[in-house]
Computed example of a mutant assay.
Amino acid sequence: MRRRRRAVLAGGALTSAALLGTLVNAPAASAHGAMMIPGSRTYLCYKDGLTPTGEIKPDNPACAAAVAQSGTNSLYNWFAVLRSDGAGRTRGFIPDGKLCSAAAVVYDFSGFDLARDDWPVTHLTSGAELQFRFNKWAAHPGEFRTYITKDSWSPTRPLAWDDLEDEPFYRVTDPPSVGGPGNEGSYYYWNARLPSGKTGRHIIYTVWQRSDSTETFYNCSDVVFDGGNGEVTG
Score class of each variant (00 low, 15 high):
Arg5His: 08
Arg5Gly: 05
Arg6His: 11
Val8Trp: 03
Val8Met: 07
Val8Lys: 02
Gly11Met: 09
Gly11Asp: 14
Gly12Tyr: 07
Gly12Ser: 14
Ala13Leu: 06
Leu14Gly: 06
Thr15Val: 14
Leu20His: 04
Gly21Asp: 14
Gly21Met: 12
Leu23Ile: 13
Pro27His: 08
Ser30Asn: 10
Ala31Val: 15
Ala31Tyr: 15
His32Gln: 13
Ile37Gln: 08
Ser40Gly: 15
Thr42Asp: 00
Leu44Ser: 06
Lys47Asn: 12
Thr53His: 05
Ile56Asn: 05
Cys63Trp: 01
Ser70Ile: 01
Thr72Leu: 09
Thr72Cys: 02
Asn73Cys: 04
Ser74His: 03
Tyr76Gln: 09
Arg83Pro: 02
Arg83Lys: 12
Ala87Trp: 07
Thr90Arg: 13
Arg91Ala: 13
Phe93Val: 03
Phe93Pro: 01
Pro95Ser: 07
Asp96Arg: 10
Gly97Val: 10
Lys98Asp: 08
Ala102Leu: 12
Ala102Lys: 11
Tyr107Glu: 01
Asp108Gln: 06
Asp108His: 06
Phe112Cys: 00
Pro120Glu: 00
Val121Tyr: 01
Thr125Gln: 08
Ala128Asn: 12
Ala128Trp: 08
Leu130Val: 10
Gln131Val: 11
Trp137Gln: 13
Ala138Leu: 12
Ala139Gly: 06
His140Glu: 10
Glu143Tyr: 01
Phe144Gly: 02
Thr146Val: 12
Asp151Ile: 13
Ser154Thr: 15
Pro155Phe: 09
Leu159Met: 11
Tyr170Ala: 05
Val172Gln: 05
Asp174Cys: 14
Ser177Cys: 03
Val178Ile: 09
Val178Ala: 01
Pro181Met: 08
Gly182Ala: 09
Gly182Cys: 09
Gly182Tyr: 05
Glu184Tyr: 06
Trp190Pro: 04
Arg193Leu: 13
Lys198Arg: 15
Lys198Val: 11
Gly200Lys: 13
Gly200Met: 11
Trp208Ser: 00
Ser211Asn: 09
Asp212Ala: 14
Asp212Phe: 10
Thr216His: 04
Thr216Gln: 04
Phe217Gly: 15
Tyr218Cys: 02
Asn219Ala: 07
Asn219Tyr: 03
Cys220Val: 06
Ser221His: 03
Val224Arg: 12
Gly228Asn: 11
Gly228Val: 12
Glu231Met: 08
Val232Asn: 00
